[in-house]
């Protein structure tokens, strides 16, 4: 059975004349432990799908099923024990006046954990930061280190699905390699399921087993990574995307 399935999902913003249909009729399913990619240009709706799943885009219809449970419009607290999201910009996603300890401690507290101290230590070790970063503030961290903190925060709830919204596009390639390796390790250790949004086909090809190509709010093609590597795309838009990705 699939860990996450999306059937005929529509997401829109605004109403009347201002209504923008950001996602139309999107359907895909992700198996447990699988890593699924969403690619497409900005405005194609790929991040909006993640937002709808995680409850940040409240105006949607269709069917979203997480671990066998169909989601209603609101999100219950236990949902966030299963699904967590990592955002694109590590500079914007951490509070500038909260230390790493504060960020992780608060998250753990909100999820109802008791042994917060031991868990903060464990989380920092898990993401390869270690103790010496525990009482630092975001401005004392590099971009890669911040993204590690953001990943640690997502892992705090011990989720089973991570939604990754362009997790490395704000980082240097050498740092990107470190973060992607970290994500690969974490998925193997914790048996996580990933849904990863990226505009970089090479990154998606490296991380994901299957991917959906989006254009103008619709999924135009779902393909596996072997077809991607062999550049066997069926839809003309996917073919164009492959041509455009320089050297990938």
């Amino acid at each position: 059975m699939s860990m996450l399935s999306v059937e005929n999902l529509n997401v829109w913003f605004g109403r009347g004349h201002d209504r923008v249909n950001a996602v139309q009729g999107a359907s895909f399913a992700v198996d447990k432990g699988e890593s699924f990619g969403l690619v497409g240009e900005s405005g194609s709706g790929k991040s909006t799908i993640l937002k709808a799943i995680t409850g940040l885009a409240p105006t949607w219809d269709g069917k979203i099923t997480v671990d066998g449970q169909e989601l209603t419009q609101g999100r219950v607290k236990s949902f966030y024990k299963t699904v967590q999201m990592v955002f694109q910009d590590p500079y914007a996603s951490l509070h500038p006046r909260h230390s790493v300890d504060g960020v992780l401690g608060e998250t753990l507290h909100l999820h109802g954990f008791r042994d917060i101290d031991a868990r903060v230590v464990k989380l920092l070790d898990d993401v390869g930061l270690g103790q010496k970063f525990r009482f630092r503030y975001p401005h004392q961290l590099s971009g890669g280190q911040r993204q590690r903190v953001a990943i640690a925060r997502a892992l705090a709830a011990e989720p089973r699905i991570l939604l990754l919204d362009e997790p490395t596009s704000a980082l240097d390639v050498s740092v990107q390699a470190e973060i992607l390796n970290l994500l690969t390790d974490l998925r193997a250790e914790h048996g996580l399921t990933y849904v990863m949004v990226s505009h970089d086909l090479a990154v998606v090809g490296h991380m994901c087993g299957r991917l959906a190509v989006m254009k103008d709010s619709r999924i135009v093609e779902v393909m596996d990574v072997d077809s991607l590597r062999a550049r066997r795309a069926e839809h003309p838009y996917s073919q164009e995307l492959l041509r455009n990705s320089v050297g990938a």
């Binding site: 390639v173 050498s174 390699a177 090479a202 590597r229």
Partner: peptide
């Protein structure tokens, strides 16, 4: 350190 479509690797 760049992932490449034509050269799959487990780790970068």
């Amino acid at each position: 350190s760049l992932p490449r479509l034509d050269q799959p690797r487990g780790k970068l």
